[in-house]
Computed example of a mutant assay.
Amino acid sequence: MRLITKLWATLLLLCVAGVASAATEYEVDQKFTSVAALEGQLFAIVNETDGKAIYNKDAQNLAYDTYANAIAGTAYLYKLHSLAEESDANVQNAYAIEVVKADGSSIGLWGNPAIYLNSGAEGGFDGCFVLGNKDQYGTDVKYGGAWEIEYAEGQGFALKNVARGGYFAGVNPAPTGTDPIYWTLCTMKEAPQTDPLADQKDALTAAIAKGKMFNALAYTDATFTTLTTKIADGETALAAEGATAESLTAATTAINDAITALAFKEGFSSLKDVPFGKWDGWGADAQQTSTYNTTWELFKTTGQSYGDPGVNDYADLSAFDKLYVTVASGTPRILLNRDADNGQWNATEAESHLIDNTVGDETIDHRQGLCSPSLYQE
């Protein structure tokens, strides 16, 4: 009984280890684009759309399965043998396609020193297999192991069987179809390991960064404390070894909800409440001609050239006495270009009454920190 218990425990541990270890995935590496390029090379025969390859599963049997399963089979690589020098004119434009080991060496089977891609005979096996070509360029039928190879740009290779007159369509049916069926002939490589939680981690990372763009200057203690707590929880969730899609998504949602719930202290207003519009000039007598539906986005450049005298798109901030701007890093850029309530944009900063955003004064408080702009109205 103890022996059986120990055996079951060992099997269980092996199963758990198997689940924990991510399977190696493979992808197409070099694609060949001519018959000449194939000569002397080892290549796989794959369907990129399906993500599957033709391979020697065991003995003479072919199979069609995922790249990983094909590579784990007996053999998945092939190499060409030109029949151009053969005395039989029927095969001089054809090739024998040998299935080989990963090092390019031949596979012996049932007395055959090498095995080749073959077609079944009419009335016999309705498919393809690999076995020796004997002295008739085929196993079950003469010329069944001889293939003419065609390449079409952007489509791939089509393999036409000399015996059956049709194109290779996979393990089944036999190559009798008259329409070309194209395959990618290529080398394979291990695919980069992907994190199944990458999307959730990216979303949480962005939410944490966005949350840190805010500070408590203009927000009530209660709502800002909630945001601070949710950011800390998010960082913990992001670093957790046992993170799941659900835990990461929940942390992201909590931060975004906390940002939405931020409430201004009494007397503060958001720039989002300030209407932006098109005006008919820059002067004190300028009139607004239309209103914009402003989009507010963090971490995005406007792509606009501010300071262009031909652009009359701005907001009227005359009702506000103080502007508080805080940033996560670097020097803040104030998108207010004048400290006077009228006058045209001019060639020099002094003439244009440009605001110097490197020092503070009685109307602008430059503070380093975290946040999006807020306005205080007195």
Rank of each mutant, 00 (worst) to 15 (best):
Val130Met: 07
Ala72Thr: 08
Asn93Pro: 00
Asp126Gly: 14
Ala75Phe: 04
Asp65Gly: 15
Lys52Asp: 03
Leu109Asp: 00
Ile115Thr: 08
Asn61Asp: 15
Cys128Gly: 04
Ile115Gly: 04
Glu122Thr: 14
Ser82Leu: 14
Asp65Pro: 12
Lys57Thr: 14
Asn90Thr: 05
Asn90His: 04
Ala114His: 08
Asp58Ala: 14
Asn90Leu: 02
Tyr76Thr: 10
Ala63Ile: 01
Tyr78Lys: 12
Ala59Gly: 11
Asp126Leu: 11
Ile71Cys: 03
Leu62Met: 10
Gly73Thr: 08
Gly123His: 05
Ala68Asn: 01
Lys52Glu: 06
Glu86Ile: 06
Lys79Ala: 01
Ala102Cys: 00
Ala121Arg: 10
Asp126Cys: 08
Leu83Arg: 06
Gln92Thr: 12
Ala72Tyr: 07
Gly104Met: 01
Tyr67Lys: 00
Asn69Val: 05
Pro113Val: 07
Ala59Glu: 14
Lys57Leu: 14
Ala121Thr: 10
Leu80Trp: 07
Ala84Phe: 06
Gly132Glu: 06
Gly132Asp: 07
Tyr64Trp: 07
Lys57Cys: 05
Asn61His: 15
Tyr67His: 05
Asn56Ala: 09
Lys101Ser: 06
Asn61Leu: 15
Asn112Lys: 06
Ala72Cys: 09
Leu80Ile: 13
Asn118Leu: 13
Leu77Ile: 07
Trp110Pro: 00
Ala63Asn: 13
Asp103Glu: 06
Asp65Cys: 03
Asn61Ser: 13
Ile71Thr: 08
Asn61Met: 12
Val130Glu: 05
Val99Cys: 12
Ser105Trp: 08
Val130Lys: 05
Asn118Tyr: 05
Tyr67Arg: 00
Ser87Met: 09
Ala53Val: 12
Ser87Glu: 12
Cys128Asp: 09
Leu117Gly: 01
Gly127Tyr: 01
Ile115Phe: 07
Ile115Gln: 07
Asp126Asn: 15
Ser82Glu: 11
Asp58Met: 14
Asp65Asn: 15
Tyr76Glu: 08
Ala70His: 02
Asn61Gln: 15
Ala53Cys: 09
Tyr116Gln: 09
Ala94Ser: 15
Ala94Gly: 05
Tyr55Phe: 15
Ala121Asn: 11
Cys128Gln: 05
Ala121Glu: 08
Gly108Asp: 09
Ile54Arg: 00
Asp58Gly: 09
Ser87Asn: 14
His81Glu: 12
Gly111Glu: 06
Asn56Glu: 11
Leu131Gly: 00
Ser106Trp: 11
Asn118Ala: 07
Lys79Phe: 02
Ala89Cys: 01
Phe129Glu: 04
Gly120Pro: 03
Gly132Trp: 01
Tyr67Glu: 04
Tyr116Val: 10
Val91Lys: 06
Ala72Leu: 12
Val99Glu: 01
Ser119Gly: 09
Leu77Thr: 06
Asn90Lys: 08
Ser87Thr: 15
Ser119Pro: 10
Glu85Gly: 10
Ala68Trp: 00
Ala53Gly: 15
Gln92Arg: 11
Gly108Arg: 09
Lys52Tyr: 02
Val130Pro: 00
Gly104Arg: 07
Thr74Tyr: 13
Gly124Cys: 12
Leu117Pro: 04
Leu131Val: 03
Gly73Pro: 11
Val100Asn: 01
Asp88His: 11
Leu77Trp: 05
Gln92Cys: 03
Gly104Cys: 03
Leu77Arg: 11
Ala63Glu: 03
Leu83His: 11
Lys52Cys: 00
Tyr55Glu: 09
Ala96Ser: 11
Asn112Glu: 08
Thr66Pro: 03
Ala89Val: 11
His81Ser: 11
Gly73Cys: 06
